[in-house]
Design a protein around this nucleic acid. Sequence first.
RNA 1: GUCCCCAUCGUCUAGCGGUCUAGGACAUCGCCCUCUCAAGGCGGGAACACGGGUUCGAUUCCCGUUGGGGACGCCA
Length: 474
Amino acid sequence: MTVVTRFAPSPTGYLHIGSARTALYNWLFAKHHAQYGSGGRFLLRIEDTDRQRSTQQAVDAIIDGLRWLGLDWDGEALSQFSRIARHAEVAHQLLAAGNAYKCYCTPEELQEMRDAARRAGRPVRYDGRWRGRDPAEAPKGVDPVIRLKATTEGETVIDDLVFGHITVGNDQLDDMVLLRADGTPTYMLAVVVDDHDSEITHIIRGADHQRNSFRQLQIYRAQGWQAPLFAHLPLIHGADGAKLSKRHGAVGVETYREEGFLPEALCNYLLRLGWSHGNDEIISRDQAIEWFGLDAVGRSAARFDRDKLASVNGHYIRQTADAALVDLVLPRLKASLKGGFAVDASTRLMKGMAELKERAQTLVELADNAAFYAHTRPLPMDGAAAKTLDTAARSRLRALRDRLAGVDGWSAAGLEKATRAYAEGTAVKLGQVAQPLRAALTGGTASPGIFDVMEILGRDESLGRLDDVLAAAK
RNA sequence: GUCCCCAUCGUCUAGCGGUCUAGGACAUCGCCCUCUCAAGGCGGGAACACGGGUUCGAUUCCCGUUGGGGACGCCA
């Protein structure tokens, strides 16, 4: 049997980090079955029936996010809105079959009903007052909604692929609205119809949909349709243990992209957040496809830990080819350095990347650390660097300057040798010379090995930067 | 309030009755390396929520308590 999964986001303006994980799991599940089972497809459907919220930009944000993460879908993305006629058709079938009925309650009446229930400590739900009522009693001028005539006795059980048996009494499920007064379908109806028509076999979605699944199951039953299998994913929480939302800060995938996280790293982190394969932490996409299964998905909610994400990102940065990192970092540097962007920045970055990438957890950090390579003279000094360049340090640099200038070939090894010889000759620790050098050449107090830096900068640039500092001292 | 679900280090997790004096990763602390910062190596501290069962034996199974989360829309 071919597995068919889907990701069905509603366009809210960004791809939520939790939705991204849901998409990833659906994608992996389908890919796994495509490669190691008897077939798998992953579909994308945009739940855009709420016309107010659904803008093209919001849809684009989701699609961009998925593309960036490398989660491709089979076929065209389906617009749920394009299928409202079909949804209405099913609602009317349900009505004709006696599995649904018209309800003439006004929104105010429903609100009162809920308030009263809450006050009395009763469960808050529709009391079914139009369930058996004669439509002849319908009030004038009120357009009815169509509600499902839900089963009231017994219980509904889901054999959840991650939670196991979950049960709810049918008396807990009320007669939900299928078709609004204006004739448009509700989410509850549209999802079921679309999932059925698309022949979805596995619905993998957040645990916040658990209750919806029970209710939707009743629609499948009423239509005599075979229901798909359900797998609910524990939610991702913020540091405070509550469902991850805007108030927790960055919640959209594109924010992480801007903050310099690699898509592979984000996917790896998200994969491990709620799913495990023994003690494996860094898992390639191919391995993930091979190993992924719903049985290893955890059942408790996980807190989003940015530090761990950053650590994983650091791993991926170190794994990424130098040239690719240069391409990623160059635009960031051009934007931040503006006019101070040196012509041979790209060449220097390429040479220095191997050492640079050991020292960064994000592309933002990488760009910051690489800025001294890309900057034109004179280099700006940060506070600590300026402090390092005190009178004593400057005089040492002045003495060292010509020795360096005399080094044949300007290689890191030769420069180091000359510097060490100078330090030994003047009974000064290497650090007392190397740190001022670092400050003068990079404008900071932390950098890759300073002799490598000098080699990459080249003789003219290095000496020039040194002279800038020495001249400023006069 | 009603219903559903969850429960191992600070965090993510391994564990699927005895292999547990509970393993890994992130974070944290210390040491090594060292021209700085990283990376890397070594090491330390840190958890089975509680109470009952079941069993020869429970982190693992069952029940309860406590704690936490989610859902209760003519939103999706």
